[in-house]
Design a protein around this nucleic acid. Sequence first.
DNA 1: ACGGGAGTTAAACGAACGTTTGATATCTAG
DNA 2: CTAGATATCAAACGTTCGTTTAACTCCCGT
Lengths: 203, 203
Amino acid sequence: MKKTDKKQHAIESRERILQAAIMLFSRHGFAETGMRELVAEADVNLSMVNYFFGSKKGLLKEILDAFFSGYLAIARDTLVTDGDLQVKLERFIGNAVRYFDANREALVIAISELPHDDPEILEYKAGWARQMVEIINHEICLPLAAESGRAIPPTCFAPMLTTIMASRFLFAPVMEKVEAGSSTTVTMGDYTKTIVRIFLQGI
Amino acid sequence: MKKTDKKQHAIESRERILQAAIMLFSRHGFAETGMRELVAEADVNLSMVNYFFGSKKGLLKEILDAFFSGYLAIARDTLVTDGDLQVKLERFIGNAVRYFDANREALVIAISELPHDDPEILEYKAGWARQMVEIINHEICLPLAAESGRAIPPTCFAPMLTTIMASRFLFAPVMEKVEAGSSTTVTMGDYTKTIVRIFLQGI
DNA sequence: ACGGGAGTTAAACGAACGTTTGATATCTAG
DNA sequence: CTAGATATCAAACGTTCGTTTAACTCCCGT
């Protein structure tokens, strides 16, 4: 095995652990997923999780970190610009839904773990939320108040916007049982358009 | 101790377990809450949970059952009536938000556990969802399609409506860290009005 | 008044948990 | 070439998990 192969293999082991964790944490939950189940799925030795991530919780942190930073980047890229409020909102929702779709498993983990008050995790979830709230405030809430007089705080609006975009992915397992195939009858494009329409002109 | 006192005490033990479970499951999650932590909070013996509820999962089921049946009852009472679609929707949102507020801990448990695919739990979450979807379809989606031509399936709309109403409670622990007191700066009445306005005429 | 069922208890069960250790193989740097 | 870092491994660590058992108390129906 060449040196590059060895390093490559290590990187791949790390990556396999991440992928397996994202899948299992989203399907069974973080706490109900055991390390042995995880390493079996990732096809690595039991010790490798602690070797690469320090602890099981460290692994969760890295997953959440990657997801939140991507979500925040989308907010920055689509909202922190000149232009009409409606255009910005439409662009943000479009990109965010695409991002949620491409990372639906990490999204489910993030929302599931969101309300739990593990101090260690909560504190730095708040770190990401703080940045998000600031963007939503400057680019949506303040302009909205200026042009229509409606004052809605970003700490209230950001959760609304995030959860409505996430709703489809959170309910997917249940709705698939309610009506098989229901998670695909509405295209992602129509899903986006529906959310945009609700926010711009109501149902 | 009188007979009524004894029976009363048993009922109270059962009730204390339920209350402690609702609190702990919502704060720490179902799987991360241990039985010993639970019975210490409820001030009962370790065996009592299995005695009253059969298993830890039986306890979770009872909590979810009570929450879902209450939510479904509100949907029936406020939506399955004659009247204008907008009036019905406004009435439903008002009552549902009040219900979520009064049962915010059970709500958090329900949403957190929603995406996980434990077959036993998933199957009967789907049972409740099926009834909910049917009501939303008949009372909202079909009338909406008839009067405005917009076709949005209830398996897509019900999750949207539910999660936007739940958003405030799901994000409360995080938003409280972002801005202390932020979970009370918007009254429940204003929160309701905002959601109603979004759905009826947009932001 | 007494047998039976319901509530409660302390103790123990085996299993599974996350983590650590020490050895081994492989690659890198000097 | 060799010393050290890196990746992998099997095995064991001590805890904690959810559940079960058996004994005990107390109340109720007959």
